[in-house]
């Protein structure tokens, strides 16, 4: 049942140009950053050889690439999540799902996983771009895998937050603005306070940073999983509330 719902979400995404545009923008911006970093790396490569323990190509090019992707995800994921539930309410198609022999949890999970399948394709494109560096040298695969894992967890958290906000309104546009606002706020709070502060602890950006540096911290993984679980549960509750 969940795959059926997920498949419909993916189809709905690609039925409009939005999904293609999102993927194209993501690729275009990342390609620009990739080439700029590559150019810079080639410029300093000669000097780097004199440095003890020099930063590698992965650290120099791939890590900033993932960092940029995390910022772009912050902007585009709310655009993709905004219609998930709000659109069904606006078009009055929600009764179809509410009258079917499926639970609200299945509806939410189906929508979430459908979107995640799409975002995984986005992460895969970033991964492919970094792998192209293999043509010219060796890569630090540990760092690369940490970055990809972090980006997937971050995308899942953003999606869960956006999905919840989409449950709160009938207007997709409001859900989109609300989602971008919420994610920006969560990013902004990471600037206040030093390490160990509350704001740093709740900001997804600070937790992604350790992945970005190649650190696999179970604390960060737990943070993302909790965030996903929290907002999916809230979404299920909100959907259940729509029956009443």
């Amino acid at each position: 049942m969940i795959p059926t719902l997920a498949a419909r979400e993916i189809r709905a995404l690609f039925a409009t140009p939005l999904a293609w545009i999102v993927l194209a923008i993501l690729q275009a911006i990342l390609a620009w950053i990739f080439l700029a970093r590559l150019d810079a790396f080639l410029g300093v490569q000669a000097q780097l050889q004199n440095v003890l323990n020099p930063p590698g190509v992965t650290e120099w090019i791939a890590a900033p690439l993932y960092s940029a992707a995390s910022m772009i995800f912050m902007m585009i994921i709310p655009l993709l999540t905004m219609r998930l539930v709000a659109d069904e309410r606006r078009n009055q198609t929600l009764p179809l799902l509410l009258s079917a022999p499926i639970s609200p949890a299945q509806i939410i999970l189906g929508k979430f996983l459908g979107l995640m399948a799409f975002l995984l394709a986005g992460v895969f494109l970033v991964l492919l771009m970094s792998l192209s560096l293999l043509a010219g040298g060796k890569l630090d695969f540990g760092l690369l895998i940490a970055n990809a894992t972090g980006l997937i967890l971050l995308a899942a958290s953003f999606s869960a937050i956006g999905l919840y906000i989409s449950c709160l309104t009938k207007h997709p546009f409001l859900a989109g603005i609300g989602g971008i606002g919420a994610l920006l706020a969560l990013w902004a709070v990471s600037f206040s306070g030093g390490s160990g502060s509350f704001f740093l602890a709740i900001s997804p950006a600070s937790h992604f940073e350790s992945f970005n540096q190649g650190l696999f911290d179970t604390g960060d993984v737990a943070y993302f999983l909790l965030c996903i679980a929290l907002f999916l549960t809230l979404s299920v509750w909100t959907l259940e509330g729509m029956e009443s």
Binding site: R8, R11, A12, A15, T16, N91, Q92, T93, L94, P95, L96, S99
Partner: peptide
């Protein structure tokens, strides 16, 4: 065991 047609048919217009 239920089939339901609401006042506004729940149709995905782009399908």
């Amino acid at each position: 065991r239920l089939g339901y047609l609401p006042e506004t048919p729940p149709l995905y217009r782009d399908m």
